[in-house]
Write a protein that binds this DNA or RNA. Structure first.
Lengths: 237, 237
DNA sequence: GAGTGGTCTAGACCACTAT
DNA sequence: TAGTGGTCTAGACCACTCT
């Protein structure tokens, strides 16, 4: 019958519903608790399932809910703080970081990475794929590009080792919103298209860019932290 | 008639559609160009309007499209890089920054801010509302909290001036995904609930937290940049 | 008033997880 | 096999902007 839309609502239903649910989450639910299923919830609030889902989607975006197909909708724990400051992460693969190498291959760098590295498109490089975990859950995947030596004989691990022996000049990072590619989604245990935070890093040595990476962080579960007190303390000493 | 879902598609229609549209945007459209309206596009690709919209929503999330009610859907320019590194933004309101003060009021700090400032909930503070612009467009709104002097007589502007005369110890920043509150959405010329990047900053003086702010950046148009070469260069000198 | 994107409905089937 | 969230449809009305 279409909708009736009486009540002269300047405020959309899903928006009001989201507010209602937020309050319910704050007051009546515990972290990890399973909510009623979508059909029941929609009936309870007198809206169509699609409208309810619009509210749930926003709450998931805000990190309040976690939805899993075949399981149900649960109340999400607070987001995990993930340190992405240069102090924590001086060179990629430095001992003690919480990244785990999944594999590597030799590639020709794509255009976007070539720009970051200040090299020609298609120049040879090692591509190292890594996963970052926090509290046992995967929170990020990364593609790390290391320009290959002219001989082309070294392994990815050797290239990483060589990197650690160099002088660090700085890092440049950008953060933007994206949606998970199919493969990243699989590694992060999410659906393709889920919102993610794209962290692009350019590692600088004294003679220019020495490495570049694109990391994909789960936006629903992560809060990126940039603590700059470390650098400031170095300045003061 | 419901859907028919033949073709045994492991890949959702909206996902495939998004890929198709991405290629079209790369090859056949110019920045600023207006796309056909949603009903026509849906018909052209043989899908329901809701399915088309699911694809458009993702493209908007990725910053490829801009949709405006009553106008149409246009091809978005590349995201603007917005510097949020400490080097750029040493103290809030430092001369030369691109923030503009919209107003201020005296408030009692809410719980989340009290935690950041290391003070009691409800302690008095100046709340300064600011807007940041890039290329003429608003890209962020901010609520900046400055603890009030014990006497309580100073103005917000005086409190800001006092801040600038203090020694900077460091900053702590976090970035996470959120959705725009009604008022922020209005200031940013977006709809309520639009995806935004929430940047929380704690400004540290030698005797502890001296200010705290929560900034709301448009996620569709902004790429946050953290260039750390500045601090590194200082270290070297 | 015409045209656009935004909201909403009622109902269907699909993919996945558990039992 | 039953139950969940994910996808999809066809159609309606609303809020907004432009002419």
């Amino acid at each position: 019958m279409g909708t009736t839309q009486l009540e002269a609502a300047p405020e959309p239903k899903y928006w009001h519903l989201k507010t209602t649910l937020t309050e319910a989450l704050d007051n009546e639910f515990e972290v990890g608790q399973i909510l009623p299923n979508e059909r029941d919830l929609a009936a309870r609030y007198g809206v169509a399932r699609a409208t309810l889902r619009q509210a749930l989607e926003q709450l998931e975006l805000e990190g309040r809910l976690q939805r899993r197909r075949g399981i149900g909708t649960t109340v999400a724990p607070p987001r995990v703080g993930v340190d992405v400051s240069p102090a924590h992460d001086r060179w990629p693969g430095a001992p003690g970081d919480d990244w785990q190498i999944d594999g590597s291959e030799r590639v020709e760098v794509p255009a976007a990475v070539a720009r970051l590295l200040g090299r020609a498109v298609g120049c040879p490089a090692h591509l190292i794929r890594r996963t970052r975990r926090a509290h046992g859950q995967p929170v990020a995947t990364e593609e790390l590009y290391l320009p290959a030596a002219p001989t082309g004989a070294e392994t990815a691990r050797a290239a990483l080792g060589a990197l650690h022996r160099r002088e660090l000049q700085g890092q440049e990072r950008t953060v933007e919103l994206g949606s998970a590619r199919a493969e990243d989604a699989r590694r992060l245990d999410r659906l393709p298209g889920s919102p993610v935070l794209l962290v692009t890093t350019r590692y600088l040595a004294d003679d220019g860019p020495a490495a570049a990476s694109v990391a994909t962080y789960r936006a629903d579960t992560c809060r990126l932290t940039f603590g700059d007190t470390g650098a400031m303390e170095l300045l003061a000493s």
